[in-house]
Amino acid sequence: MNAFVKTLLCTSSLLTALVVLQPAILASVDDAQSFALQAAEPYVKEGFQVREDYWGGDLGSGEKKAVRQQLFKGNEYWFWLGTEVDRAKVSVHIYDSDGKLAEESDGWEKGHFAAAHVIPKTTGSYFIIVSVEESPEERTHWALVYGFR
């Protein structure tokens, strides 16, 4: 087999693998988003408008990610975190721009769901810290959605 055919075969195999794997990777973040939206559902009845936009990615056990978000005084916000990994434990917390915990005490963590509630005292940037506390998977997909009223 000459070098050209070899390269062609390798490239096409790699491309096929990418095409086959990509929807699976995307589907997992989408699944995580579905769970985050599921956590948000009861709050819609309480008048919260849930944004279509969301953050997502994957984290290893014990890893954290910070999301920066502009919040407005006068509004009330809930952030909902979800993952499709059943036995994972996730958490979400909210800090102000000085790094001080800014959330209300009614946030919750229930296995692969977590939520945090904030009524901003000032308008400005806040940091939402998402974390995969435990997971049977090497990498755990997560998605964070938020709502306001």
């Binding site: 944004r51 936009d53 969301y54 953050w55 990615g57 954290k64 990610k65 910070a66 999301v67 920066r68 978000q69 502009q70 958490s91 917390h93 800090y95 721009s97 000085d98 790094g99 001080k100 915990l101 940037s125 940091f127 810290i129 938020y146």
Partner: peptide, 18 residues
């Protein structure tokens, strides 16, 4: 839950704003 975090340490892990 820590009551305070060091924001400067987060710089590498901060996602884009929505």
């Amino acid at each position: 839950t820590p009551q305070h975090i060091d924001i400067k340490q987060l710089s590498k892990t901060v996602e884009d704003v929505v």
